[in-house]
């Protein structure tokens, strides 16, 4: 393949990574924004989403479409409820102290991961995509001074991947509408602005926290349900999304949703493109160092919109 089509393929794959990452990271950003705590177990909620999606499709029997739709509706709700339960039983008790929350969520990370290992097992299992037509993509070629459209071999994307990108956009728009147009969103933003004041105005801050934590985890689970027909479900799959979400949230400015989505695009696209030039390990080294340096020298994120 020529370089041009190759780059386009990388961009398409990058857009897919960006879409899933934006969903996962906006969940983490939401939790950090509203509650001012870092949820280290976020990646495990993602993993749980994938594993439960496999489980639900198995229960649904033969039809991949039915199974997938069921998983899409049920799994994020289940994971969100579990997260809300964790919030009410554990995080509430430690009063959302930032450092103790990190310790507790590290514990939750291991519990979720190891319970999955004990029940689901160490295997990686695939989920069948509901539809998966291959769509060949054209490329423009300049030959003899005339433009010509042709279909290079290997330059294609599946209909399912396009669906994931589209679905992510829809969900993110929904989240935006929820935060800006509804009463719940208003309450969450009020809590984010000033917890004490919100309490004084009679906002049920405790319930808002549980909802925000559940919603954040639900977003991660949703992202996982979408990606699991492409990647397989495995009990250790939560590590990378956690790391990448961290990176995205930090670059986007801690707790800022639009910043996180913008950063997800940047990371997702550059991840695809960087890996053409570097080995994946080297790319990851640069990415982690980049995050560290952003935090050290630009603690409000690259765009400087978030609160310190």
């Amino acid at each position: 393949m020529d370089f041009g089509p190759y780059l386009m393929l990388a961009i398409m794959e990058g857009a897919l990574t960006a879409a899933v990452l934006a969903l996962t990271a906006s969940g983490l950003a939401l939790v950090f924004g509203v509650m001012r705590v870092v949820n280290v177990a976020h990646g495990e909620f993602f993993m749980l989403g994938a594993v439960l999606a496999w489980w639900v499709t198995q229960l649904a029997g033969g039809s991949p479409v039915l199974g997938f739709l069921l998983a899409l509706c049920v799994v994020p709700v289940l994971v969100g409820m579990l997260a809300a339960f964790v919030d009410m039983t554990i995080l509430k008790r430690i009063n959302y102290d930032p450092e103790r929350t990190i310790v507790a969520t590290i514990g939750i990370l291991y519990i979720l991961q190891q319970v999955t290992l004990m029940t689901y097992g160490p295997e990686a299992r695939p989920v069948a995509p509901p539809f998966n037509a291959r769509i060949a993509l054209p490329w423009i070629d300049m030959s003899d001074g005339t433009l010509r459209l042709y279909w290079p071999w290997g330059l294609s994307i599946t209909s399912y991947k396009l669906f994931v990108i589209g679905a992510a956009c829809v969900v993110l728009l929904g989240l935006w509408a929820l935060m800006t147009k509804t009463k719940l969103g208003l309450l969450m933003r009020a809590t984010e602005q000033d917890r004490e004041m919100a309490l004084a105005f009679g906002i049920p801050v405790q319930r808002i926290y549980a909802i925000a934590f559940g919603l954040g985890a639900g977003m991660a689970a949703l992202a996982a349900v979408l990606i699991v027909p492409i990647q397989q479900a495995h009990y250790l799959m939560g590590g990378d999304p956690l790391l990448l979400s961290f990176i995205v949230v930090i670059i986007g400015g801690l707790g800022s949703l639009p910043g996180a989505i913008l950063a997800a695009l940047l990371i997702g696209l550059s991840d695809g493109i960087i890996s053409i030039f570097f080995s994946p390990t080297l790319a990851k080294i640069f990415a982690t160092l980049f995050v560290a340096f952003v935090l050290v020298f630009r603690p409000k994120g690259l765009w400087g919109t978030g609160k310190p």
Binding site: I90, R100, A104, G107, I108, I111, Q113, V115, M118
Partner: peptide
């Protein structure tokens, strides 16, 4: 799993 449970227990 043990480490996880202990961590949560300690934090709380």
């Amino acid at each position: 799993l043990v480490a996880g449970v202990v961590l949560v227990f300690l934090a709380v």
